[in-house]
Amino acid sequence: MIGLSHYLILAAILFAIGIVGVIRRKNLLMLFFATEIMLNAANIAFAAISSYTGDLGGQMFAFFIIAVAASEVAVGLGLLILIYRKYGTLDLDNFTMLKG
Protein backbone atom coordinates (compact mmCIF):
# COMPACT_ATOMS: atom_id res chain seq x y z
CA MET A 1 0.00 0.00 0.00
CA ILE A 2 1.26 3.42 -0.90
CA GLY A 3 1.71 5.75 2.05
CA LEU A 4 2.15 9.47 2.33
CA SER A 5 5.91 9.19 2.63
CA HIS A 6 6.12 7.51 -0.79
CA TYR A 7 4.63 10.59 -2.39
CA LEU A 8 6.80 12.94 -0.35
CA ILE A 9 9.95 11.06 -1.29
CA LEU A 10 8.91 11.14 -4.96
CA ALA A 11 8.37 14.89 -4.66
CA ALA A 12 11.80 15.29 -3.06
CA ILE A 13 13.45 13.28 -5.85
CA LEU A 14 11.75 15.38 -8.53
CA PHE A 15 12.72 18.57 -6.71
CA ALA A 16 16.33 17.37 -6.60
CA ILE A 17 16.20 16.70 -10.35
CA GLY A 18 15.04 20.28 -10.80
CA ILE A 19 17.88 21.55 -8.64
CA VAL A 20 20.40 19.57 -10.69
CA GLY A 21 18.92 21.19 -13.78
CA VAL A 22 19.22 24.68 -12.31
CA ILE A 23 22.83 24.07 -11.28
CA ARG A 24 23.90 22.35 -14.46
CA ARG A 25 22.25 24.19 -17.33
CA LYS A 26 23.57 27.42 -18.77
CA ASN A 27 20.75 27.99 -21.25
CA LEU A 28 18.01 30.30 -19.95
CA LEU A 29 15.21 28.28 -21.55
CA MET A 30 16.49 25.11 -19.87
CA LEU A 31 16.53 26.97 -16.55
CA PHE A 32 12.85 27.69 -17.04
CA PHE A 33 12.18 24.00 -17.67
CA ALA A 34 13.99 23.08 -14.46
CA THR A 35 11.92 25.66 -12.56
CA GLU A 36 8.73 24.05 -13.87
CA ILE A 37 9.97 20.68 -12.63
CA MET A 38 10.53 22.07 -9.13
CA LEU A 39 7.08 23.70 -9.05
CA ASN A 40 5.49 20.40 -10.09
CA ALA A 41 7.34 18.55 -7.35
CA ALA A 42 5.87 20.96 -4.82
CA ASN A 43 2.43 20.38 -6.35
CA ILE A 44 2.74 16.62 -5.89
CA ALA A 45 3.67 17.06 -2.23
CA PHE A 46 0.74 19.42 -1.64
CA ALA A 47 -1.78 17.14 -3.34
CA ALA A 48 -0.52 14.07 -1.48
CA ILE A 49 -0.71 15.73 1.95
CA SER A 50 -4.13 17.14 1.08
CA SER A 51 -5.39 13.71 0.11
CA TYR A 52 -3.96 11.81 3.08
CA THR A 53 -5.09 14.25 5.77
CA GLY A 54 -8.52 14.99 4.29
CA ASP A 55 -7.78 18.72 4.14
CA LEU A 56 -8.47 20.56 0.90
CA GLY A 57 -6.03 23.38 1.70
CA GLY A 58 -3.19 21.56 0.01
CA GLN A 59 -5.07 21.35 -3.26
CA MET A 60 -5.88 25.05 -3.02
CA PHE A 61 -2.19 25.84 -2.65
CA ALA A 62 -1.48 23.65 -5.67
CA PHE A 63 -3.98 25.68 -7.68
CA PHE A 64 -2.31 28.91 -6.72
CA ILE A 65 1.10 27.45 -7.56
CA ILE A 66 -0.22 26.59 -11.01
CA ALA A 67 -1.49 30.17 -11.41
CA VAL A 68 1.88 31.57 -10.35
CA ALA A 69 3.66 29.22 -12.76
CA ALA A 70 1.45 30.31 -15.64
CA SER A 71 2.09 34.00 -15.05
CA GLU A 72 5.80 33.33 -14.51
CA VAL A 73 5.99 31.66 -17.91
CA ALA A 74 4.11 34.52 -19.59
CA VAL A 75 6.37 37.24 -18.19
CA GLY A 76 9.55 35.15 -18.36
CA LEU A 77 9.11 34.21 -22.00
CA GLY A 78 8.55 37.88 -22.87
CA LEU A 79 11.83 38.73 -21.15
CA LEU A 80 13.58 35.82 -22.90
CA ILE A 81 12.41 37.08 -26.28
CA LEU A 82 13.73 40.55 -25.42
CA ILE A 83 17.10 39.15 -24.35
CA TYR A 84 17.33 37.04 -27.48
CA ARG A 85 16.54 40.01 -29.71
CA LYS A 86 19.13 42.17 -28.01
CA TYR A 87 22.03 39.72 -27.65
CA GLY A 88 21.22 36.90 -30.07
CA THR A 89 21.88 34.21 -27.49
CA LEU A 90 20.39 32.71 -24.36
CA ASP A 91 23.65 31.59 -22.77
CA LEU A 92 23.92 32.72 -19.16
CA ASP A 93 27.67 33.25 -19.41
CA ASN A 94 27.13 36.15 -21.80
CA PHE A 95 25.12 38.13 -19.27
CA THR A 96 27.92 39.06 -16.90
CA MET A 97 27.87 42.81 -17.52
CA LEU A 98 27.18 43.51 -13.85
CA LYS A 99 30.49 42.15 -12.65
CA GLY A 100 32.64 44.75 -10.94
Binding site: A67, V68, A70, S71, E72, A74, V75, L77, G78, L79, I81, L82
Partner: peptide
Protein backbone atom coordinates in the same frame (compact mmCIF):
# COMPACT_ATOMS: atom_id res chain seq x y z
CA UNK B 1 -5.42 40.20 -10.77
CA UNK B 2 -1.96 38.61 -10.93
CA UNK B 3 -2.88 36.70 -14.09
CA UNK B 4 -4.20 39.90 -15.66
CA UNK B 5 -0.96 41.72 -14.84
CA UNK B 6 1.05 38.83 -16.27
CA UNK B 7 -1.00 38.85 -19.46
CA UNK B 8 -0.48 42.59 -20.00
CA UNK B 9 3.23 42.24 -19.20
CA UNK B 10 3.60 39.41 -21.69
CA UNK B 11 1.89 41.42 -24.43
CA UNK B 12 3.98 44.53 -23.74
CA UNK B 13 7.28 42.64 -23.49
CA UNK B 14 6.85 40.50 -26.59
Amino acid sequence: VMLLVAMIAGIILA
